[in-house]
Structures are given as C-alpha cells and as structure tokens.
Design a protein around this nucleic acid. Structure first.
Lengths: 192, 192
DNA sequence: ACCATCGGAGAACGCTCGTTCTCTCTCGAT
DNA sequence: ATCGAGAGAGAACGAGCGTTCTCCGATGGT
C-alpha cells in the first residue's frame, strides 16, 4: 500500500469516526482496525493522535470549502449566491451522518486543552466569514451583513445538530433573505 | 458539613471546572480537591460522574433561565424584551470565564455517547425556543420569528466562543432588530 | 538455498481514569 | 475510660488510553 494512499485512508476513517462519536471516544486501536492498517503503519504516517486530529480538521476544512463553493457557483445572481450558503446547509443537515459542525464539536471537546485545535477552529470560522464577506461585497451589501449571515449559519448548524432536524436551515434562509434585502435596500434606498 | 451544602458545593465546583476545561479533561480527584470534599463524600452524594454531569446541566439550565428572565423583565416593551435576549448574551460574552454555551459544549463532547446528555441538551434548547416564542407572541409577531431569533442567539454563542470576542452579540442584536421589525410590519403592513 | 530487510499482528508499557476499599482518627453516648 | 459509628485521606483496582516493542513470516537479491 502506497504511503499517501494509507494517509488519506487513515484520515478519512478518522474523520468519520471522530465526527460521529467524538475524538476522545475513539481510540487508536479502533481507528487502526477501521482503517485496515497496522499500528506500525499508523505511527509511521502520523507521530501522534494529535497530528491525526489536525489532519482531519484540514480535510474537513477543504471538503467544506469545496462543497460550499461548488454550490455557490451554481447560483446565477449575487443575492442567490448568498442564499446558496443556506441551501448548502440544508442539504448537509439532511444527510443522516450529520452531527453538527465538526469544528464547533472539536473546539468544544478539545479547544480548552489544545491551543492547536482552538487556533485551527478559529481560522476555519474566520475563513468562512471572509468568504461570506466577499459574496456580500459582490452583492453590493454594506459590511455589517456578512457577520450577521455568518452568525445565522452558525446558529443553524448547532440548532440542527441538537434538535436533530433540518428545519433550522430553512428558517435561517428566510431570515437571511430578510437581512439581505434590508441591507441592499438601505444601500440603494430609492429601489423600493 | 451539611449534605445539601456539600451537594451544591460539588455541583458548583464541577460546573466551573467542566465548563472551563471540558468534562473528560477533569477527573474525580481534581474535582474532589477543588470542592474540598472527600472521595467518600463525593460518592455518597452522587453515584457516578455521569450523575454529577446531569446535576451540572440542571444547575446551568436554571442559572441561564433565571439570568435571562431577570434581564428580559427589565425591558419595558415587548420589542425590547426580545432584544434583551441579545443584551443578556452581550453581557455574558464579556465575562472572562465565557467559553461558549455549556450545553452545546457538553453535547459536542458527550452527546454521541450519552443519550441522557443529548436529551437534556435538546430539552434545554427547546425550552429556550419556547421562551422566545412566548416573547414573540406577546410582541404580536408571526410564528416564524421565534426560531429565527433562536438561531441568531445560538450562532452568536458559538461565534463568540470560537472567535473569542463579544462583538457577535451586537451583530446578532442588530440582525434581530431587522428581523423583528420586518416581522411586525408584515403583520401590520399599514404601519410603514 | 540463504540471508537481510521489511511490515503486519498484537503484546506490553506507563499512565490516567472512575470507582471501591482500607486504615485511621475523631467524637459523642454510656 | 470505652466503645462504636462515621468521616477523611488516600491506597488499590481494573479498565482503557496513547505509544512503543517484540516477534515472525513474507519477500527479494545473490
């Protein structure tokens, strides 16, 4: 087995296990078994569990950004591109493996005792806010819109995770519509 | 030392420790030392760590409800009572012990492996949504407003926790103003 | 055929956890 | 003074963790 093939298999398996059950609840032995690699190989690829966790976070960040951007690119107008964020959330919440935002979960579990994890979660959320800000700017919205939409998106994720229903995405989407239209009409008030 | 006095001391200490560092990161020995009780006393009051966790959640739920309601009651109008939710969040986020919503954190850490914890977090969030719904109803807002404001409040909590700044509460508050006014004017459209 | 090297399987190690047990001391009733 | 109940301090236990080590069979070059 190729080294990078083993790496990605380990990270993909760890991602699924950690996400569904929590990081501290999944031991190296279970990960080894599920990934189908030997412990020796595991520790040849990663020096510690902590480094696997960081690799999982990086993978999750990439998957999130790619999936979101793909969905956003399909929308024809700047306004619909902003709303596409919530369409993407709605689709995600509907997956039966959904269990909240992996970064929030990992931050909640390890952020207080692992500065690395805390910093990466912060970076991930900052990158998302920056992405939303760029979309909002392209829509001609004032600067305060992006943080508001980001907060809506965050809230939808935790609400859906705990309540276990995908409704939160729809409610967040309608709220986003109101906020977007209010922001756009305040910048171009003559439109009404 | 009185039994109920010991109980509340244990729960208060456990709350502070669990909230600041995570539950799995705090052992019974550290809790015993910090609370100043013997291990024997600890296990005389609580049969297991899991029962302490549940007692901590109940305490946190009560403190949250009491603090929120006290703040809301000070507001003179139904509209300001809805906004008082976010004033309360802003004050909370400013405390230097703030580390996100304890229920979200506990759910993220243990929800997947403890049905009790998951159920209680769900109840807590449902109670909050119900509380917001009552305030929204008193303001004469349509039913869709309450879930939207709840999502905003959730998002503000996780955003503030990870970003480490209290700004999220202010941004959520202005978003809430827009949503509230839009909801109220849609019900009484002639007002504009 | 032989040897050296590699990697897989999993035993072993040191540690920490939640929980229980043991020992000792205190203190009030007789 | 003596006894017994109760509580404090912490040792002990079994389990599980992350990590390392040991064995052993497979493989490829000569």
């Amino acid at each position: 087995m190729n080294s990078s093939e083993a790496r990605s298999r380990i990270v993909a398996t760890a991602d699924a296990l950690y996400y569904s059950r929590g990081i501290q609840a999944v031991g190296m032995d279970e990960l080894r078994t599920a990934a189908g690699v030997s412990l020796k190989k595991l520790y040849a690829e990663f020096p510690s569990k902590g480094s696997i966790v960081m690799a999982v976070l990086e993978r999750r960040h990439q998957a999130w950004e790619d999936g979101l951007d793909a969905r956003v690119r399909q929308a024809p107008t700047p306004r619909l591109r902003l709303l596409a964020i919530f369409d993407y959330l709605c689709q995600w919440f509907g997956e039966d493996t959904f269990r909240g935002c992996g970064f929030i979960n990992t931050f909640a579990e390890l952020g207080a005792i692992s500065p690395e994890v805390a910093a990466y979660a912060r970076e991930h959320k900052a990158a998302f806010q920056h992405y939303v800000a760029r979309l909002a700017e392209e829509a001609g919205a004032p600067a305060h819109l992006a943080p508001q939409l980001s907060i809506l998106a965050e809230g939808a994720q935790t609400t859906a995770a705990i309540a276990g229903s995908a409704d939160a995405a729809l409610q967040a989407r309608s709220a986003a519509e109101v906020l977007i239209d209010a922001a756009l009409s305040s910048r171009a008030p003559a439109a009404g």
